[in-house]
Amino acid sequence: MLHNDENDFSKGEFTSFLLASLRGFSQVVFIENAISGVLILIAITITSYKLGIISLLSAFVGTFIGKIGGAPKNSVNSGLFGYNSVLTGLAVSLFLTGTSRWGIALLGAMIAAIFTATMMHFLKNIDLPILTFPFIVLTWFILLASYKLEVFHLSDSLVPQSLSNWHLNITGDLNWAAGFFNNIEQIFFLNHPLSGIFLYSAIFVASWQLGLNAVIGSVIALLISYGLGGEHSLIIGGLYGYNAILTFMAVSIVFSTKSNRFRIISGILATCLTIPLTASFSTWLLPYGLPVLTMPFVLSTWLFLGTRKVMPNL
């Protein structure tokens, strides 16, 4: 009987661990839902089975570190130690080359979980969410290490460019439908016709309100980036949209209450702000060959959530 009890306990522990890891995927879009996590994992795997494997392993690593580290059980089970690890694993495996990148990606996933815990401690006193800040900073440091350490091999897709040779190109037709789906795909660095459908479905499965917010955020991004004269290739590729989607969801619904009477207006303003922030960061990072990642989303969201401490109606 003792042996059977131990087996039942092990099965229960494994199931809990698996569900927590899947929620690590869904927490990227503010959702605590294992089914949504499965749909997101499918969306990633459709684009590349290798990305699907590394993202799942990264979720396992982040969740495992939170668990053995003694983090609050509810935080671990809700996936809060997995989402930064998932994004870090994906980014490192995409932006580095060579066989060593897989090991670096998993090591990055582990450090991302530790960094997440650190940020939780520092930001709890000012009551701000950590969002994807650990993933951003850690990924930038790993990619910059490639200039000084031989084992890190930067991908050819990240090429440092001189600002003096940069020219804005806003020619070409706009495929609005492609831009709409690419906007959400870029949250996970994806580019496949079906991936966007799975990602929007993952959000709607958990909450129609969040799903509607994702759609609105995507539309706002398309209109504002086009109205401001953004490069059509970047608009279609979703590079102006993914930060906008996350920001509108965060400011207008996820981190708002009924006391924030103008939360929808704040959400729209914060979303619009991500467009020039994205342009600014891409310009600033151009000489280093670094991707913008989700920094515009983090800064715009922190700005408006911080403002609410003084102006609660927003």
Rank of each mutant, 00 (worst) to 15 (best):
D156K: 13
V159T: 15
P160Q: 13
P160I: 09
Q161G: 10
H167F: 08
H167K: 12
H167C: 05
L168Q: 11
N169M: 06
I170A: 09
T171P: 06
L174H: 12
W176F: 10
A177H: 09
A178G: 07
A178Q: 13
G179V: 05
G179Q: 04
F180L: 07
N182Q: 03
N183H: 11
N183M: 10
I184F: 15
I184T: 13
I187T: 15
L190Y: 00
L190T: 04
N191D: 11
P193M: 01
P193W: 08
L194C: 05
L194K: 06
L199R: 03
Y200R: 08
Y200V: 09
S201P: 05
A202V: 12
I203D: 08
I203F: 14
S207L: 08
W208C: 06
W208L: 10
Q209H: 08
Q209D: 01
G211S: 07
G211N: 04
L212G: 15
L212H: 05
N213R: 02
A214P: 01
A214D: 04
V215W: 01
I216V: 14
L222Q: 12
I224K: 02
S225C: 11
G229I: 01
G230P: 02
E231H: 03
I235G: 06
I235T: 12
I235K: 11
I235D: 09
G238H: 03
L239T: 09
Y240M: 02
G241V: 03
Y242W: 09
A244M: 08
A244H: 05
L246P: 02
V254D: 08
V254Q: 13
N260F: 04
N260Q: 12
F262L: 15
F262N: 14
F262K: 14
R263V: 01
R263N: 13
R263D: 09
